[in-house]
Design a protein around this nucleic acid. Structure first.
Length: 677
DNA sequence: ACGAAGACTTGTTCGGAACCTA
DNA sequence: TAGGTTCCGAACAAGTCTTCGT
């Protein structure tokens, strides 16, 4: 096995960002082989250079603001330590003295994890303690429902509703112009819930005869009214809100002041599932203190709540977890809603770093990993062969693991749950994937695979391990599931799981593309910062495509494109006019109007540049209309790659990371410019 | 061994603020 | 200065993966 040709990395699917779940038989031009993809080298065995920088990259005295987000307004409780916060935790580094060669690398890694040690979720399986002291104010409840008294119509006539009934009717009414209104499942689920709230003998017997427009109109009017508020009013309201919320925004962990992520209890509403979710339209009922479990340090004040007579469901003092509160989801009894600390918190930063370090560890093993699964393609054991092929997809295409799902969830798949019908074979070892993945986002891709994989797939699609014939809806890989696969991965590397491959592939791709870009621009004319940013974005885009991060086409897209075209048209005619004018002046060799010629020329030049710019804008807008760059930036691309690149290329990091990203990635800011993933 | 519980990450969308531009 | 974009953060749904209980 292991023909060299298949450590060719990840296909780049430059072409073809597909539409969302709209099934459509696009005969997309297959993968665009494009220039890029050769060099399978820099990525693999990075054994060469790499980290000597780990040294400081890790002793980040990170931490961030949070101070100001802390309610400066209120002295949140005497808390003496409110001023202790931010500052170095994590004592100094271990003494340098790295040994030599491979050994040294090892050592560095260990040092890292040692430093991270406690309070790092991912390296802290099971009973690890995450905190010593924990203090916070609990959660903020949404306001109680205030009846508006607007009557909906039934059979053309106004009906009286109790506040509870009206509340639910209003939830529905305000969704008037969403697509949910066209979905039978949504309507059915809503009606069932509504019916129940109405009670047996209610005049309303049938959703079809309901007319919610009066409520809808009222709602829209409210919205308008809000818009026309004066500045002062708005400011006042905002101030009041901030005051009320201030104390919930921070928590104190081991004395440190840390931001809380989502301290608000979710308000009641209609469940908006993605894709064809069987539960869409169900009523998500109001959550009360009696539903909520609080996790807080022993001896700390128990958070208050505005419901006299009620108590929290439970008060816990669990030091092994990072959540502050949770409640059971009312839509799906097996789901939980948690209140966690924010993205800039120590908990999150630590685990973020750990995530990327794990992916880098995989990088050092990837050659062997590939050899292994390639070998498995020819294993006599059917299961081994299937696993080998699955691993190939996960590695090459960055697919998600794909766990089993219940019938009461949207029918989506990942690698391990692919069905026969999701994978079509085409000539020349081409495989066409077409399935709905997470969030029911469609994954559509045609990839050339290794011939052995192709052969295996032919069989996996036809018959199962026992030789029984398969149907289109059957599992492609019937011999194992995501858990089995992860178990296998544990044998290769501690903590390795399927998702690490996605992180690894995204990061290594960014790293490689940026390096290639830099190389290709060597000696070329200096680029402006904007041009460099465009380069970065193009690399970002490839990663996003690899991970299939899509977004729906903005509603105004077509409109805007038209506008741009118009603009372009105008610019072009203006250019033409200028050129004609120039020609005329030149021909008429008019009265020594030299100056005029010159100024015309410069005008023409300017016009051309303007046109170029608009064209570029148009192209990139069209290009990115279905690609979401943000997700990979936030979750997959090691920020140290970006920071180092910025340093090397004199691009201010603020050009690439917005404020919240800067906060989130504070831990990566002082990486060496030479950092490579 | 296996399914359910539990906890944490990843993902898209939405609404408001900031920013442009005519 | 209104009106439209773009940018961002909040919201919350939907994944992943480990642990727990039987």
């Amino acid at each position: 096995m292991s023909d060299s040709d298949d450590d060719i990395p990840l296909v780049k699917r430059l072409a073809a960002p597909p539409a969302k779940s709209t099934p459509k038989p696009t005969p997309k031009p297959a993968a665009k082989p494009a220039a890029v993809q050769l060099q399978s080298k820099p990525r693999d065995n990075g054994a060469s250079k790499k980290k000597q920088e780990t040294e400081d990259e890790d002793d980040d005295e990170d931490n961030e603001e949070s101070e100001e987000s802390a309610s400066s307004s209120e002295s949140d409780d005497e808390g003496s330590e409110s001023d202790v916060p931010l500052s170095k935790r994590r004592k100094s580094k271990s003494p340098g003295a790295a040994s030599t060669g491979a050994k040294r690398k090892r050592a560095t890694q260990q040092k890292e994890s040692a430093k991270r040690s406690r309070r790092d979720p991912s390296s802290s399986k099971s009973g690890q303690l995450m905190w010593k002291t924990l203090r916070h104010s609990g959660v903020l409840f949404p306001p109680e429902y205030e009846p508006h008294g607007v009557k909906m119509l039934y059979d053309g006539k106004p009906v009286n509703l109790t506040p509870e009934q009206e509340e639910v009717a209003t939830m529905f009414a305000v969704m008037k112009d969403t697509d949910y209104m066209k979905k039978p499942v949504f309507l059915k689920n809503f009606w069932e819930g509504f019916k129940e709230i109405l009670g047996k003998n209610h005049a309303i017997k049938n959703l079809d005869k309901c007319d919610f427009t009066p409520i809808y109109d009222w709602h829209m009017a409210q919205r308008e009214a809000k818009k026309t508020m004066t500045k002062e009013e708005k400011d006042r309201i905002k101030k009041e809100k901030d005051e009320k919320e201030g104390k919930y925004k921070v928590a104190y962990v081991d004395g440190r002041c840390e931001p809380v992520g989502n301290f608000r209890v979710e308000p009641p509403g209609l469940f908006r599932g993605r894709g064809e979710h069987p539960k869409m339209g169900k009523i998500k009922r109001r959550i009360y203190p009696r539903d909520i479990t609080i996790n807080i340090g022993e001896g700390e004040a128990i958070p208050e709540h505005p419901y006299p007579g009620q108590t929290w469901k439970e008060i816990k003092h669990d030091h092994t977890v990072t959540w502050l509160a949770y409640w059971k989801d009312t839509i799906s009894s097996k789901d939980y809603k948690y209140v966690f600390l924010g993205a800039t918190s120590t908990f999150k930063a630590d685990s973020d770093l750990a995530k990327y370090e794990k992916a880098r560890k995989l990088k050092d093993l990837i050659v062997d990993v590939r050899k292994n699964y390639e070998r498995d393609w020819e294993n006599s054991d059917h299961k081994k062969r299937q696993m080998g092929v699955a691993m190939y997809f996960i590695d090459k295409l960055a697919l998600r693991a794909g766990h089993e799902k219940d019938d009461d969830e949207a029918d989506t798949v990942g690698c391990c749950t692919l069905k026969v019908e999701n994978v079509d074979l085409e000539p020349n070892n081409k495989v066409k994937f077409d399935f709905l993945g997470k969030d029911s986002i469609r994954y559509e891709n045609v990839v050339e695979v290794h011939p052995t994989v192709y052969k295996n797939l032919e069989r996996f699609r036809k018959i199962d391990a026992t030789g029984k014939k398969k149907k289109p809806g059957d599992q492609l890989f019937e011999t194992f599931d995501a858990q089995d696969l992860n178990k296998e991965l544990k044998n290769i590397m501690d903590g390795l799981s399927v998702k690490v491959f996605r992180t690894y592939n995204a990061s290594i791709t960014l790293d490689r593309l940026l390096a290639e870009l830099e190389e290709s621009k060597m000696g070329a004319a200096a680029q402006s910062v904007d041009e460099k940013k465009a380069d970065y974005d193009s690399a970002n885009k490839e990663v996003a495509i690899l991970c299939n991060h899509q977004r729906s086409v903005p509603k105004t897209h077509t409109n805007q494109m038209e506008k741009i075209q118009e603009k372009l048209q105008i610019l072009n005619t203006e250019l033409k006019e200028l050129e004609e004018e120039l020609a005329a002046v030149q021909k008429g060799k008019s009265d020594g109007k030299k100056a005029s010629v010159e100024s015309l020329l410069s005008k023409i030049e300017k016009k051309k540049q303007a046109i170029f710019k608009v064209e570029l804008q148009a192209r990139s807008k069209e290009d990115l209309k279905t690609v979401a760059l943000g997700t990979s930036k936030i979750n997959y691309m090691d920020p140290r790659i970006t920071v180092a690149w910025c340093k090397r290329n004199d691009v201010p990091i603020e050009k690439i990371f917005n404020k919240s990203l800067l906060g989130k990635f504070n831990w990566a800011m002082d990486v060496e410019p030479s950092f490579r993933f």
